[in-house]
Design a protein around this nucleic acid. Structure first.
Lengths: 339, 339
DNA sequence: CACGTTTGTTAATGCGTATTAGCGGCGTAA
DNA sequence: TTACGCCGCTAATACGCATTAACAAACGTG
């Protein structure tokens, strides 16, 4: 047993058995093509030497040769290992990990991305994203400039969450907020609500704009009135003053706060005021209400993002922009108007 | 902007700037030795091209040539991003991430390790651990065979959690369960407990065996009786029948269940029965009791594991087996016996 | 017997990087 | 003028593997 300090290489095996390194490689990879083949006895001799030495191909050299690292990068604008238990991003990561595992890729975490001007940057000193074959981008908001540079440089990447064009179509796997929101608006209209409010920004990140678009369109189609209000200390007063009977909150946590405030003021939920939460909490929220709304298919989004990335890397064509449906949650905060 | 599909290489940069690949490599690695040097203006030209293209050295090639790529691998026997549960492993990962960042390394998660017979395997087809300079192994139980093979192959790795020898001493950073447990036993003895119980396996993973060892030794030294019981549906009856006044639970969650059961039966905690939790919950546990026990220094363990790994890689000698003290938690479930 | 064909193996090459030896050109001292 | 050293850079090579083109030998076939 040659127990030198060096690793055993194919060359070593070759010398032992009196064949060439090429032969060893072929035996190892079980290439039985018509093009190249090895006599059974030679093969056996090589295999024995391999077994005797416990040789295993060096994965590094192997990957250098086939031009692929089998790393997928994960860039997130928040810490990679989330602090809170109920972290919003966690399910995405679970999906990403599961799919990566299924296609035999490892995950490279860019935890060292520098924070400049209050947010993480992709392009700072050197572009670490290039370390991986391709990357998953995770975060509520991605800088359009950075996106367009990624596109221009021909980087393989997929965004989790829909993104507007940035000098070209951005590959993404997003949630279908417009449809999901519209469905809730229609439901409210069926329950007799005639004036409803959207509380939130309705602009900025695509996910906000999409919700608001679905809200506006559906309200118009249903022939009811939809207004938008910012989440401010006195937004409840405004809502009541304007005669809104249902409120659609962009942020779950805001909804929880608002509902709690309503309770304190003697406004009954949902009898006096209905609530619809447009998605899962992105920050910790405590409430004992069972909010009506919908769930973002986070795990599925993570999974499919890796799928899309993989297809891009393989050169397999296919749709690089996917919108996934949200699952409606019946809940108990949407009732007949003025019940 | 040459947006071919191929990765940009040092050769590309070299051609762009009219220098050799060697020069690019030298500039990149900031080699200012007397041996080889580059004129400031040439250097600047190269750097500009690098910035323009966003070039980053291929980690795989680098590792092949240099034997290093500044990646630390993280291998876990459970999913890295645990689905649903209250994440026992999270603090370890935070520590690992922090220390890795501080020494300028990226983390590579081996999500591609295949699951065979219900658990992840290190050695399956090819051993990807070698893709990183060294690895952190995380999990309650590590297969001794795999460990001994890692040792035999001279892999650089560190286990989070103490491990028995596996054909040689295993580098680890563990928690000092024996001491922490013994301290609690002594405290119980001081409070007048004469017969105490250890509920759990007390065997299997080193962390369990260590707890039980500390329990047994300390009980003997204190001159009190210690018995071991499995966590079964009627373990509470047994405890009471045997006249135990304090119970030391291996698993926090079991303790929570047990205490709840006690409450339902009218057994007061801690007046009639004291509880000591030997470590943090490894699975979700809900209780409104403030358990007496100790905390596992998880984040610190993660941090130090990276530290030890780093010293191994540097060839800097030093202790490769570290036991960290657990922090005692006073809590409110350990009282005077028969109070 | 000249000429394809199949079979088993190998030499050569490329993957992208780091390192080492060395090469011209220039300046300075002998 | 020669000798020597220094500066700025490059050619060559290694790392371990996979792949391709090619080659020698054996084997028909006409």
């Amino acid at each position: 047993m040659p127990s030198s300090n060096r690793r055993v290489t194919q060359q070593d095996i070759a010398r032992m058995t009196g064949v060439s390194q090429t032969t060893v490689s072929i035996v190892l990879n079980e290439r039985d093509d018509a093009a190249v083949r090895i006599a059974p006895e030679t093969r056996e001799r090589v295999l024995q030497a391999i077994r005797r030495t416990g040789y295993v191909a060096d994965p590094i050299a192997r990957r250098l040769a086939d031009q692929r690292n089998r790393f997928l990068g994960v860039f997130t604008y928040e810490p990679v290992f989330p602090a809170g238990l109920g972290d919003f991003y966690h399910p995405f990561l679970v999906g990403i990990e599961e799919c990566a595992e299924s296609i035999g890729c490892d995950l490279l975490l860019f935890t060292s991305a520098p924070v400049i001007d209050g947010r993480r940057r992709i392009f700072a000193q050197d572009n670490r994203l290039r370390l991986a074959d391709g990357c998953i981008l995770l975060g509520r908001w991605l800088d359009p400039q950075e996106l367009s540079r990624l596109l221009a440089e021909g980087q393989a990447f997929v965004s989790v969450g829909r993104r507007d064009d940035a000098g070209g179509p951005v590959p993404y796997v997003g949630a279908d907020y417009p449809s999901a929101t519209a469905a809730q608006v229609r439901r409210a209209a069926e329950l007799g609500h005639r004036k409803i409010a959207y509380v939130g920004e309705g602009t900025g990140p695509e996910s906000h704009a999409d919700r608001f678009r679905g809200f506006t369109t559906a309200a118009a189609e249903a022939g009811i009135t939809g207004v938008r209000l910012r989440f401010t200390p006195n937004v409840l007063d405004e809502l009541r003053a304007q005669g809104c009977t249902a409120v659609f909150v962009e942020e779950f946590a805001d909804g929880a706060l608002l509902a709690a405030e309503a309770g304190r003021r003697g406004v009954r939920v949902p009898e006096d005021l209905s609530f619809v939460a447009l998605g899962d909490p992105t920050r910790p929220a405590s409430t004992d209400l069972d909010f009506t709304g919908y769930r973002i298919p986070r795990r599925e989004m993570g999974w499919q993002a890796v799928e899309v990335l993989s297809s891009i890397l393989d050169g397999t064509g296919g749709e690089t922009q996917r919108l996934l449906p949200c699952e409606p949650v019946a809940g108990a905060t949407l009732a007949v108007a003025g019940a």
